[in-house]
């Protein structure tokens, strides 16, 4: 089971056709494998937060059982653009 930031980033980028993905390994802040991800994808458009998070959870279904603490933020490209302008 590969659990690296690069591996997770690439998997999220491909499966969710993301235009931007950030994966931060937060393991050092905790005592077990931890990651924080930011995913920007048009697949999130028109979807409530719960469904967006489910898409990410499904993408990483095999990895999540081995990750102790997982944090995520999901944005549409429009939200991402607006956020960067602020």
């Amino acid at each position: 089971m590969e659990l690296s930031a690069d591996y997770l980033r690439e998997k999220l980028r491909q499966d969710l056709e993301a235009e931007h993905v950030e994966v931060e390994d937060t393991t050092l802040n905790r005592c077990a494998t931890s990651f924080r991800v930011l995913v920007v994808s048009a697949k999130f458009e028109g979807k409530p937060l719960l469904q967006r998070h489910r898409l990410v959870n499904e993408c990483l279904a095999e990895e999540l059982p081995h990750i102790h603490a997982f944090e995520q933020k999901t944005l549409t490209p429009e939200q991402w653009t607006r956020q960067r302008q602020e």
Partner: peptide
């Protein structure tokens, strides 16, 4: 609930989500 992690928050029996979602809300 098709949700792999905890905590999980429910309102009137429906899943709201985990910590990240609650924070965003």
């Amino acid at each position: 609930s098709n949700w792999p992690t905890y905590p999980q928050l429910y309102v009137r029996g429906d899943l709201v989500g985990g910590l990240d979602i609650v924070k965003e809300l």
